[in-house]
Amino acid sequence: MAQIPPRPGRGRPRLLPGKIAANPRDQILAASAELFVGRGYAGTTTREIAEGAGLRQASIYYHFGSKEEILADLLERSVRDRVTQAEKVETEMEQHAPEVGLCALAVSDMSALVAMPYNIGMLDRLPDVIASPAYARFSHLRADLVAAYTRSGLRAAGEQVATGAREPGLGELLLPMVESVISLRREDRIETATVSTIASACLRLCGVEEELIGQAHESAQSALATH
């Protein structure tokens, strides 16, 4: 079974896994992430961000031109590292069976989402964020992520999935399944088997035979552990 990484603690703000917010810019981003996810983008003021970061409100505008710029930075950070990781996993899984590659991609991506501080993967699901001009600025990164799932999904599907389901839109079906851990995490419904269950569902969507799914999990876990 895939192991769920522990969530970041509630001590000093952390912007990204393993990265302590040790400078004003990162303190602003960390405070904004917690506030945007907790009370919404539109419902958060720069004064509240400054208070959360332990800074004067004027300091916000020294590092960012607007609240929208803060949001754009956070949206990019919530996806950019996932895209880099997806590309790395794809390359490393080339020597494995296609279903192992897709399983490894899904497991590694979900583990990253579960570990994100303040559950910032939630940002691009908030209506006021989607309505913001900043949302369009990160759409190309999300498209890259969809493309990675499309490639891995089509390789895993082979000839077992009907032609209509093998169009590039397959990645747009797989990615939301993986990102369902974002909502589950917000509702405190993440359990030890959650990642494995969702990864299995991704393989089933691509028509992977049931007897191969367990083997794919074992091989994916082993391969990820060595990289």
Rank of each mutant, 00 (worst) to 15 (best):
P17D: 02
R10A: 07
G40H: 03
A112W: 14
A143C: 02
S200K: 12
A33P: 01
D26F: 03
G207N: 08
M122V: 06
L105K: 00
E48C: 06
A165I: 10
H96L: 08
V37Q: 05
Q85R: 15
I130A: 11
G164A: 12
I213L: 10
G214W: 11
R82Y: 03
E179H: 04
E87Q: 15
Q221Y: 04
E69R: 14
I198D: 01
M110A: 04
E68A: 13
A220I: 13
G11Y: 04
G169L: 14
Y149P: 00
I198K: 05
A134E: 02
E34T: 02
A162R: 12
P13N: 10
M116I: 05
I182P: 03
E159T: 14
R185S: 04
A22L: 09
S196Q: 11
I60R: 02
E92G: 08
G101T: 05
L74N: 05
G65K: 13
S78V: 09
S32G: 08
Q215V: 10
Y149L: 03
A156Y: 00
L145V: 09
M122A: 14
S111M: 14
A58F: 12
R151F: 03
R185T: 08
V100D: 04
D81A: 14
R77Y: 05
F64T: 02
A162K: 07
R12D: 07
R137H: 09
G9S: 11
A115H: 06
G101E: 10
Q27M: 01
V79R: 06
A201H: 15
L141S: 01
I49Y: 01
I20K: 11
D144Y: 03
R166C: 06
M110V: 11
P6Q: 07
I198Y: 02
V79E: 12
S200F: 06
L123D: 03
G171I: 00
L141Q: 04
M116L: 14
L71V: 13
L29A: 05
M122W: 14
K67T: 12
Y135R: 14
I182D: 01
G18R: 13
L224N: 05
E99F: 04
Q27I: 00
H63R: 03
H63P: 02
T197Y: 10
D188I: 02
G38S: 09
A216P: 05
M93K: 04
S78L: 09
E92T: 06
A157I: 05
L145S: 08
S196R: 04
A21E: 04
L205R: 13
A31K: 02
S219T: 12
P176Q: 08
I60A: 01
L145K: 04
I213V: 15
Q85C: 12
R142E: 12
A31N: 06
A58G: 11
